[in-house]
């Protein structure tokens, strides 16, 4: 009888903890969306920002800068991770090198973003003299997302059945050809999932960008050539959405609707990316993965 009472208590605790987790999430999302969505108008999304009171408070520059950083750091990181993961899964034999690489990626994924920020500041901003710029921010973010993409890519490469490879090799194809022609295409959905997860990380990142990208780049781009004006500022400062949320929440000069609406944009972006990753993983990944 005593044991049963304990069981009941534990069951109640288990259920209440699970419900609590769910409630925390729905509370966060609900609170942000209820307070933010009414202010997230079309003009908010398509106009520039000025720090003066009563000025235009749009977030278009931040959206462009965020996009910029996402694209540049993915361009830098994806080839590296692909090649690295291919080596780890297709070529490497167990040994010291593999251990070192695995340990390094593990360590990298555990390092907090503020350390990446300090490192990026010391190396890219000061040493390489890139100044506070979108480029130094992207380089820093490249290091941040390296372990994420590497791990998911490795997993999805491993999940391709070895039958496929063996069939290719038996037909006389070389290892490189089998890897590029058979293994990689079949692992593509898993790799895409990893890339989308990395995008989510970049969109939400603040601490690593705080002193590598700078916070004053929230001007609305001007120039003769519209393309150049919008995308021609790799070497200049660029405020991202997450940084903008931090600044406008902390300095208190903007009306409170600005951080709420920015947070709503961020949450929606993260939610969409998360769903997309899930969808791709479920629909396209034939081998199930790990």
């Amino acid at each position: 009888m005593k044991i049963k009472k304990k069981d009941v208590v534990l069951t109640i605790m288990i259920w209440s903890c699970a419900v609590m987790t769910l409630m925390i999430l729905s509370g966060i999302i609900g609170y942000i969306l209820i307070n933010g969505l009414p202010h997230m108008s079309l003009s908010f999304l398509t106009s520039g920002y000025s720090a003066v009171k009563g000025g235009s408070k749009g977030v278009l520059p931040m959206i462009i800068n965020t996009l910029y950083i996402v694209i540049i750091s993915l361009i830098l990181a994806v080839p590296l991770c692909l090649c690295g993961a291919i080596y780890m899964t297709q070529y490497a034999r167990q040994g010291r090198i593999v251990h070192a690489i695995r340990f390094a990626t593990e360590v990298l994924s555990g390092i907090p973003s503020i350390i990446f920020g300090l490192f990026g500041y010391a190396v890219f901003v000061v040493l390489f003299q890139l100044k506070l710029s979108i480029l130094s921010g992207s380089l820093t973010m490249m290091i941040c997302i390296l372990p994420i993409i590497m791990r998911t890519t490795e997993e999805s490469l491993l999940s391709v059945p070895s039958m496929y490879k063996e069939a290719g090799l038996a037909l006389g194809a070389g290892k490189l050809r089998v890897t590029m022609g058979i293994v990689l295409p079949n692992a593509l959905p898993g790799i895409l999932t990893g890339i989308i997860l990395a995008m989510g990380r970049i969109v939400g990142e603040t601490a690593a960008l705080l002193f590598t990208v700078g916070v004053s780049g929230n001007f609305f781009p001007k120039g003769d050539n519209i393309l150049d004006a919008t995308f021609g500022h790799v070497f200049e400062q660029g405020n991202t959405l997450a940084l903008h949320l931090y600044n406008s929440a902390m300095n208190g000069k903007d009306p409170v609707s600005v951080p709420f609406a920015t947070a709503a944009v961020l949450i929606l972006l993260i939610f969409i990316l998360n769903r997309l990753a899930d969808l791709i993983y479920r629909r396209l990944n034939r081998f199930g993965g790990k």
């Binding site: 987790t21 769910l22 925390i24 999430l25 729905s26 966060i28 609170y31 942000i32 997860l197 989510g200 969109v203 939400g204 990142e205 603040t206 601490a207 997450a242 949320l245 931090y246 929440a249 951080p259 947070a263 961020l266 949450i267 993260i270 939610f271 990316l273 998360n274 899930d278």
Partner: peptide, 16 residues
């Protein structure tokens, strides 16, 4: 939901 919780940026936690 747990996955999404992990994906929410830390600024948003701070803001809330």
């Amino acid at each position: 939901a747990v996955d999404l919780l992990a994906g929410i940026p830390s600024v948003i936690y701070g803001f809330i």
